[in-house]
Design a protein around this nucleic acid. Structure first.
Ligand code: MN
Ligand code: MN
Ligand code: MN
Ligand code: MN
Lengths: 229, 229
DNA sequence: ACAAATTTTTAGATTTGCCTAAATTATAAT
DNA sequence: ATTATAATTTAGGCAAATCTAAAAATTTGT
């Protein structure tokens, strides 16, 4: 196909921009702002404008001066391909190389740019076609399809709600290490027992053990509410 | 350490040059020629000169105008690190992802540039510390140490000599596929029965089966001569 | 509606890595 | 020992990706 020509010709930088635009595009339904891209990529707005022009030239984004940017179908497909690779590599690092979930992202940022269909499909098979990465984020399949899991922030559910911890919103090493230290992990059964009026902190029961967590922590943990009582 | 600073700051291109200089340096004991580098890297001599200057600046190579180039100790160590990664990834691809030995090189050329000590050491462990890659080439250890295996070209051994096939000199996909097609693989027991005066072709017995191979083929197969008769 | 503030783009420069064409140095041949 | 040939380097330029500073467009506040 002619419009797949890009795939193996894209530079690392182009791929990173496409990925960033994808992530920013999820949140709001609006076009993505130049400044937002610049901030997330730790670069200057003028550099972003330059790159946007190139990406637009290659039909990866829709762009009109001063109007922000959005991915084309091709751009979207490209982004999903890179995210698929990133998350599969993260699973590999945890499952096969005993990395902890706070160590994988940095290396996956490099590995996601390796170009080989056979490589990524074999890896997928080796890992038994995982549906989620170590942080609970969904892994797109070969065709870019994936289902966002039904989940809610722990800070949003009513009292007495319970469920399984299925993901983290902030997946910075700092937060992940904090969770490790406090024995909180994906798969844990969590139930909200009480919410403190004063500061919004929560008393929870996690795998039978009682503990208190701040509102900030709760607003970065996803649970799949199973049994309301 | 101060002289290890480079390691994570080297560009892909710099790494490829260092690797090429290493490979060319093995053959002759001479300094490596600009043209030789250019040819192997499919680039122009003037580009090589440019890069050599940069590498010299970073103390990775010894360089005097018109006198060719050689690796410094730091350059040598760097090269061995990259080669270690390349060959470990090749083993991984064959052992864990069912790649065939003619498919691994291209992908390993990309993977060898991934920067993470933990990654490569874990991979080494996962593969049970292999000593040789799928083409029979030795894998340097963590400190860059490796022993060149005792081996000879099949074309160089006298008649009636036997041994195990332990490597290939040419590891192009074309040659490797040819070997597959003819049922020749590393580990096979090979014995030279007769050498044809006319064209230098060899009658061999390989794992019990008799066959004839050209001189060119024989001069690209390494055996470890075990039992002379 | 219009001035002020913010966002975005342009202009011009820099670095890396490559190129062609021309000049220089080294080597081989007579 | 010159001359011819081959190897190497320099000069000058180009594209990608970044930057700073300045200009232009948009949005916000009154
Ligand atoms: Mn990640
Ligand atoms: Mn992740
Ligand atoms: Mn190889
Ligand atoms: Mn190899």
């Amino acid at each position: 196909m002619y419009f797949c020509v890009n795939k193996y010709l894209m530079t690392r930088s182009e791929e990173n921009y496409i990925k960033t635009i994808f992530h920013l595009g999820r949140k709001g339904t609006q076009e993505v702002a130049t400044n937002a891209i610049a901030e997330l990529m730790e670069t200057k707005p003028s550099s972003v404008t330059d790159m946007i022009k190139r990406l637009s030239e290659k039909d990866l984004v829709n762009y009109k001066r001063y109007q922000g940017v959005s991915l084309t179908d091709l751009g979207n497909k490209t982004a999903l391909g890179i995210i698929r690779k990133h998350r599969l590599w993260e699973v590999f690092l945890v499952e096969k190389l005993d990395f902890s979930w706070d160590e994988v992202h940095e290396v996956a940022e490099q590995l996601e740019h390796i170009k080989s269909d056979k490589l990524i499909d074999s890896l997928d098979k080796l890992l038994a076609y995982p549906k989620f990465d170590p942080h609970g984020d969904p892994i797109p399949d070969k065709n870019g399809g994936f289902k966002e899991r039904d989940r809610e922030l722990l800070s949003e559910v009513p009292i007495n709600t319970g469920g399984v911890c299925v993901g983290v919103k902030d997946s910075s090493a700092t937060f992940l290490k904090f969770l490790d230290k406090n024995g909180i992990a994906l798969g844990n059964q969590i139930k909200v027992m009480e919410i403190e009026e004063f500061d919004g902190s929560l008393n929870i029961e996690i795998d039978g053990r009682k503990m208190q967590i701040s509102h900030v922590i709760a607003s970065n943990l996803y649970i799949k509410a199973s049994d309301e009582i």
